[in-house]
């Protein structure tokens, strides 16, 4: 029973290869069209993942600055430092004494004259914190905790640009998903149309087969293999084209980043990604074939 099942699938697969070989020009053109359709979202995905990788090399960690009241003494600063270290989300605490802050400001030429004219130091003691969790919710919770501490006057969080980057990443991700979905539909339609043309040339065989006992599953099987095979090949075409594009653009990008003191290089797709793309291509091809044959069998006269 299992042997017969394997044999039936083997024959269907063989017939799919034969059908593909029977009209090589049409098969190559269809495969290239599907490959290009897969390559477009793949290219965007690759661009997006490379931008993300490049961004992750930048210091995007938000700094949190805590300013004490101007009247706060050295002892208050000491107590506050202990309290800051006790907050769960605080990974590192750096104390900036008011004297050091003033000295740094005086080093700025534009501020020196103005500060030299003052009798007293107007700057408060301050702390620069490095948070453990940098998501928006954790930082907002942390801000509340810091403001509740005694002698704390203000808390300034520098994470707006990180939020912008995150929004951009989310937008890019959604764009890739949307384009991917639209082009996945295109792959299904292109494969479906290829299969529809094949069905028309094999209408007699299908009709006779149905009349002498072929089930719809039997009729459908070689077309499904054909669709899956074409989709997988198209996935391979998209991967190869993408690799060529990354190689071509990668040389320029590398030369550019070296001039900025970075060794950043464009990433090629890894084995798991390649397998996924070929698998998705095969699935979309299979789906297109399934829909096309099912529609035909539903409309066919033979019961």
């Amino acid at each position: 029973m299992i042997g017969a099942w394997i044999s039936a699938h083997g024959q269907a697969c063989l017939r799919a290869f034969k059908r593909m070989g029977a009209s090589p020009a049409a098969s190559i053109i269809s495969t290239l069209v599907i490959g290009i359709a897969i390559m477009l979202p793949l290219g965007l995905y690759s661009l997006f993942s490379n931008v993300t990788a490049a961004a992750s090399r930048l210091n995007t960690e938000p700094n949190v600055n805590v300013y004490l009241q101007v009247a706060a003494k050295d002892d208050d600063a000491l107590q506050t430092e202990k309290r800051l270290k006790a907050i769960a989300n605080v990974a590192e605490v750096k104390f900036v004494p008011r004297e050091v802050a003033l000295a740094e400001m005086k080093r700025l030429a534009s501020m020196a004259d103005l500060l030299n004219g003052l009798d007293t130091n107007p700057l408060p003691h301050a702390f620069t914190l490095r948070p453990r969790a940098t998501d928006e919710a954790s930082l907002e919770q942390m801000q509340k905790e810091l403001l509740a501490l005694p002698k704390v006057d203000a808390v300034v969080m520098d994470f707006e640009w990180a939020k912008k980057l995150k929004r951009f990443a989310t937008f890019a991700e959604r764009l890739v998903m949307l384009l991917g979905a639209v082009l996945a539909l295109a792959v299904v339609f292109v494969t479906g149309n290829t299969i529809r043309l094949q069905i028309l040339t094999q209408k007699d065989e299908i009709e006779v087969s149905r009349l002498i006992g072929a089930t719809k599953r039997f009729v459908r099987r070689p077309f499904l293999y054909f669709g899956a095979l074409q989709g997988a090949l198209a996935g391979g075409v998209a991967v190869a084209a993408m690799a060529a594009l990354i190689w071509w653009a990668g040389q320029e990008v590398h030369a550019l980043t070296i001039s900025y003191g970075s060794d950043f290089q464009l990433q090629y797709l890894n084995a798991a990604q390649i397998a996924s793309i070929i698998g998705i291509g095969a699935f979309l091809g299979w789906l297109g074939a399934y829909l096309s044959v099912s529609l035909y069998l539903r409309s066919a006269r033979t019961v």
């Binding site: 009349l211 002498i212 006992g213 072929a214 089930t215 719809k216 599953r217 039997f218 019961v303």
Partner: peptide, 13 residues
């Protein structure tokens, strides 16, 4: 549908 296929396979048409 499947049963019909089996039936036709046992008929000579």
């Amino acid at each position: 549908e499947t049963g019909l296929g089996v039936l036709r396979r046992n008929l000579g048409l």
